[in-house]
Design a binder for these strands. Structure first.
Lengths: 180, 180
DNA sequence: GATATACGGTTGCGCGTTCAACCATACCGT
DNA sequence: ACGGTATGGTTGAACGCGCAACCGTATATC
């Protein structure tokens, strides 16, 4: 008994729209609370755990945006003083981006609004088991499309309340995944 | 034993990225095969089963785009001769959009590429049971966010093999969701 | 060492979307 | 009837993103 095209298309429409609804909620919450866009917040999130900075191309891979896209996102963050560009002398063709103290502070503030809104628009409606199942299915989707990267799919947020502290993955060794 | 924030955020990142990957694949396939954007295809899809036309505002609700957004999407479709605007004499403030023969033809062609790509990038990687589970979870998400509308979540594609013609909805729902 | 190639990043441009303002039409209370 | 309000649609400006072209730097080949 195979699923009909209607069922498959329906499932995809659900995916499309659920993502849209949650994403809009997050965008709006972030913009309202700190003026950050979701992409900017994501960059700050990545940089806040990458002590030695990240290359532009790695950020692009992490966020699934183009090279020019990440250039502009970082442009805006640099302009607001939340991120710093840095060209390492030993390899002068890359640009390392590092979070500034002001950036870390902004991220901490934004993280509050982010987690709260994620709870309201996402996790609140799913049981813990649901979340794991959803994660598993979507991960299979990513793997099937060759879009699976371990480090990309775990945004390292610092836990706020004394919840189980994450095992601080520090091997941010970028795999240079530009499939351009 | 509650799921950690990391797990929730991770699940959301999966949602975000899986959607992005599938959407990109569909966009690209449609553009390559027929020059249509995903939004334009979606409009054609809706119109192809709405015999008596759809109002702009209804289309906007169906696609989850803004009023101005749907104006421009329809503009492009009208300009390529795939869709017709029509102002009913009995209510001259609405605009009914109807698919033209050329539009129906274009949709038929596009549908092939669409279904094939959806299979390749989506359903291919999930079992039938998976698809149903996924659908159920995402639907719960939509319901939880008050974004559930029966008719929106079933894109009526014509099955190649036997189908059931969907009932056609005539008058507008007052609850259109451009909560602007 | 000189030339070719690959890699990383930025820039110009076009496209598509939203927001806010606006216009037109229908609906409602009096 | 008549003003006020709500509804449906379009328009202009701004924004964010991707594509392609470009430049600078590192690496490979000879």
């Amino acid at each position: 008994m195979a699923s009909t095209n209607q069922e498959r298309v329906g499932a995809w429409v659900h995916l499309l729209q659920a993502n849209q609804v949650v994403e809009n909620a997050l965008q709006q919450a972030l913009k309202a609370s700190t003026g950050l866009s979701l992409a900017e917040f994501e960059v700050l999130s990545r940089l806040s755990v990458a002590g030695s900075g990240l290359r532009m191309v790695d950020l692009a891979g992490l966020l699934l945006v183009s090279k020019s896209g990440i250039t502009r996102i970082v442009d805006r963050l640099v302009h607001s003083g939340l991120v710093r560009r840095e060209v390492p002398p030993e390899n002068r063709r890359v640009v390392l981006t590092r979070i500034t103290p002001a950036g870390a502070e902004a991220f901490d503030r934004a993280q509050g609004a982010f987690l709260e809104t994620l709870e309201q628009s996402f996790s609140r409606h799913l049981s813990d088991a649901d979340i794991r199942v959803l994660r598993r299915l979507l991960r299979r989707l990513l793997e099937g499309n060759g879009a699976w990267e371990e480090e990309r799919c775990s945004m390292h947020l610092r836990e706020r309340s004394g919840e189980s502290a994450p095992p601080e993955r520090r091997t941010a060794r970028p795999g240079s995944r530009s499939s351009s």
